[in-house]
C-alpha cells in the first residue's frame, strides 16, 4: 500500500501539498486535468470547501476524484454550511471512500460569498470539529452514541502566522493542538522573518507545519491582498520586485518568488514543508516546483 500522508510527514521528508478548487457546476474537465497534473508531483492535494463562501462542487466529491485517480486527498471541511449531524455523516462517508486526511476549518463568514442571505451554520467551529473527529475515532459520535464501524483520520488545521495581533492566534493554535490537530497548513506567508518567529513558538509542539505559499501574479494583486485579505502581509521589497518587471512578466516573477521562498524554507529547514495555493493558476504549480528544484 502507498504511504499515508501522515507517514510521509513523519518520514522527515520536505512535504509538498497543493490545492484544487472544484468547479461551479458539473463540468469536471479542468478539475480532473489539474488532479492528473499534480497528483504525482505533490504529496497530497487539498480540495476547498465552498471557499470564500462561494457555492461550488463539494470538497468531498473532489476528494473522491483524487482517490479514484490514485492521488492522496486532504478533505477541507468547514463548519459554515453543515450542523454537527451533517458534518459527522460526511465524515463517515469520506472514511468509507478511503479519505484519511481532514483539514478542520471554521469557514469564512457568509457575507464575503455569493449567497449573501444564507444562514451561517457554525454549529461547531474548528477546535470543536477537531475534537469531534478524535471522538468519532474512539468509536462514538459526539452525542455519545456508539458507532457501528469507527473512523480513523489524520486531522489538520490552519493557522495565520502573520495575523495582527498575533497573540490570540497563537493561543488558538495551542487550542487546536490540544484538541488533536496533527498538522497545520498556514495562511500565505511572505515575510520569512515573521514566519521564523512563528516557527520558534510552534516548534515546542509536536505537530507538522506546512508554510502556505500563495502565488503572486502582479504588484497590484500583492497590494490588493495587503489591503483586503486579513492576515496577509506582502513586504514592500516583494511588491517592488513585482512592479519592476515589464508588462506581461508578472506571473513569471511571481513563480520565481514562490520558488525562491520554497527553496529558502527547505534549505533552512524552517518548517516541514509547503502548501502551494495557486488559486486558478494550478497549471503553473509544476513549474514552481521545478524552479525550486523539487
Amino acid at each position: 500500500m502507498a504511504e499515508s500522508f501522515r507517514d510521509v510527514l513523519n518520514s522527515g521528508k520536505f512535504v509538498i501539498t497543493s490545492e484544487i478548487g472544484p468547479p461551479k457546476g458539473t463540468n469536471l474537465e479542468k478539475t480532473l486535468h489539474h488532479i492528473d497534473l499534480l497528483k504525482d508531483k505533490v504529496d497530497a492535494l487539498n480540495v476547498t470547501d465552498n471557499q470564500s463562501s462561494v457555492m461550488r462542487y463539494p470538497s468531498l466529491g473532489g476528494c473522491i476524484l483524487i482517490k479514484e485517480r490514485g492521488g492522496e486527498a486532504i478533505l477541507q471541511m468547514t463548519c459554515r454550511d453543515r450542523n454537527r449531524l451533517a458534518l459527522q455523516a460526511d465524515i463517515l462517508f469520506a472514511y468509507t471512500r478511503g479519505i484519511r486526511n481532514i483539514l478542520c476549518l471554521t469557514g469564512d463568514s457568509i457575507p464575503v460569498g455569493d449567497h449573501k442571505e444564507a444562514k451561517g451554520v457554525f454549529d461547531l467551529e474548528s477546535v470543536q470539529l477537531i475534537r469531534m473527529v478524535r471522538t468519532m475515532e474512539s468509536g462514538t459520535d459526539i452525542g455519545g452514541n456508539e458507532l457501528n464501524g469507527a473512523i480513523e483520520f489524520y486531522p489538520g488545521a490552519i493557522v495565520t502566522p502573520e495575523a495582527n495581533p498575533i497573540e490570540p492566534q497563537l493561543h488558538k493554535f495551542k487550542k487546536k493542538v490540544a484538541a488533536g490537530a496533527e498538522f497545520f497548513q498556514t495562511q500565505a506567508v511572505y515575510d520569512l522573518g515573521n514566519f521564523r518567529n512563528f516557527m520558534q513558538y510552534a516548534r515546542q509542539f509536536n505537530v507538522k507545519i506546512l508554510a502556505g505559499i500563495v502565488l503572486l501574479v502582479s504588484a497590484r494583486m500583492a497590494k490588493f491582498m495587503n489591503d483586503n485579505v486579513p492576515g496577509i502581509f506582502v513586504p514592500q521589497e516583494l511588491i517592488d520586485e513585482l512592479a519592476g518587471v515589464e508588462k506581461g512578466k508578472g506571473l513569471q516573477k511571481g513563480v520565481e518568488i514562490a520558488a525562491r521562498m520554497i527553496r529558502t524554507i527547505k534549505d533552512e529547514s524552517i518548517c516541514d514543508g509547503v502548501h502551494i495555493m495557486a488559486i486558478g493558476k494550478e497549471e503553473i504549480v509544476p513549474e514552481i516546483l521545478a524552479i525550486a528544484g523539487l
Partner: peptide, 21 residues
C-alpha cells in the same frame, strides 16, 4: 463574534477588526 465562535478568533481577524466589516 460574527460566527459566534467559542474558542478564540478566526483567521479573519484584521488589526482588531472583524473580517466582515
Amino acid at each position: 463574534c460574527t460566527k459566534g465562535l467559542l474558542n478564540g478568533p478566526c483567521g479573519g481577524t484584521n488589526n482588531g477588526k472583524c473580517e466582515v466589516d
